[in-house]
Simulated assay, not measured.
Amino acid sequence: MSGIQLEAGEKVRVDLTSPLTSLTFPFLELILITGLCWMGIGYLDRPDLATTIPTDLRNAVVVIWLLLVTWRFILPLARSRRRRFMVTDRRVLVRAGTFKARTDSIPLRQIHHVDRRRNRIALALGGFDRPLHFKDVPKAKKAAAVINQSIGPARYS
């Protein structure tokens, strides 16, 4: 579970991460970047330019391509795979998509109300004036239903 530790006897009810469809635009950028960079490399490799253009220029274009692919595709892929929203029988665990993000644990007994709007979930917690908002939660309707089922009837403080 890479960084998320469950307590003894704790059961996972919902475990969600970003869907691969969230990488549609980064994938299209990958295709565009690869096409443009390698067309440039093909142009630099022409036989009539082989003597006038240094090979360091071609290698620089390859390095630029690699950096762009890493920045525009590989990093978003890694971030989307790290994002996590998990509901167990005792608590809600949330981890952002950044590399140094810590996992937040919210006990179910502190949750008074769950609200969902599209792919956002708002948790009303005891002791907080405002609800905690989590955006871009995949299958937010299912997650909100499981949390509502877990906390039982609406509790008011």
Score class of each variant (00 low, 15 high):
84 R>V: 07
78 A>Q: 11
119 N>F: 04
73 F>M: 02
91 R>P: 06
72 R>K: 10
126 G>E: 12
85 F>H: 08
103 T>M: 12
59 N>M: 00
132 L>W: 03
96 A>F: 09
142 K>E: 15
129 D>L: 00
66 L>G: 02
73 F>D: 03
91 R>Q: 15
87 V>E: 15
90 R>M: 07
129 D>V: 08
76 P>D: 02
55 T>V: 06
98 T>M: 13
106 I>C: 13
62 V>G: 02
55 T>Y: 06
100 K>C: 07
76 P>C: 04
82 R>W: 03
132 L>T: 13
71 W>H: 03
133 H>R: 00
125 L>E: 14
115 D>R: 12
80 S>W: 13
75 L>I: 04
127 G>C: 09
141 K>R: 06
125 L>P: 03
137 V>I: 04
59 N>V: 04
124 A>G: 10
113 H>C: 01
116 R>D: 05
142 K>N: 00
90 R>Q: 14
65 W>M: 07
80 S>F: 05
88 T>P: 06
84 R>E: 12
74 I>W: 15
130 R>K: 05
91 R>V: 12
66 L>M: 01
117 R>G: 07
55 T>C: 05
71 W>L: 10
132 L>M: 11
76 P>Q: 10
64 I>H: 11
141 K>G: 10
79 R>W: 13
110 Q>G: 06
93 L>N: 01
63 V>S: 07
128 F>E: 02
111 I>M: 12
79 R>N: 07
105 S>A: 15
119 N>D: 07
81 R>F: 10
130 R>A: 11
122 A>M: 12
96 A>M: 12
135 K>D: 03
136 D>E: 05
76 P>R: 01
62 V>K: 13
81 R>G: 01
65 W>D: 02
61 V>E: 00
132 L>P: 12
112 H>N: 14
87 V>L: 15
139 K>D: 14
116 R>E: 13
101 A>K: 01
138 P>F: 00
90 R>E: 15
69 V>L: 14
105 S>T: 14
105 S>L: 13
97 G>K: 02
60 A>R: 02
101 A>E: 15
81 R>T: 14
90 R>D: 11
80 S>Q: 04
56 D>S: 10
93 L>H: 11
140 A>W: 06
102 R>D: 11
128 F>N: 08
59 N>W: 08
73 F>T: 10
117 R>Y: 00
88 T>H: 04
63 V>E: 03
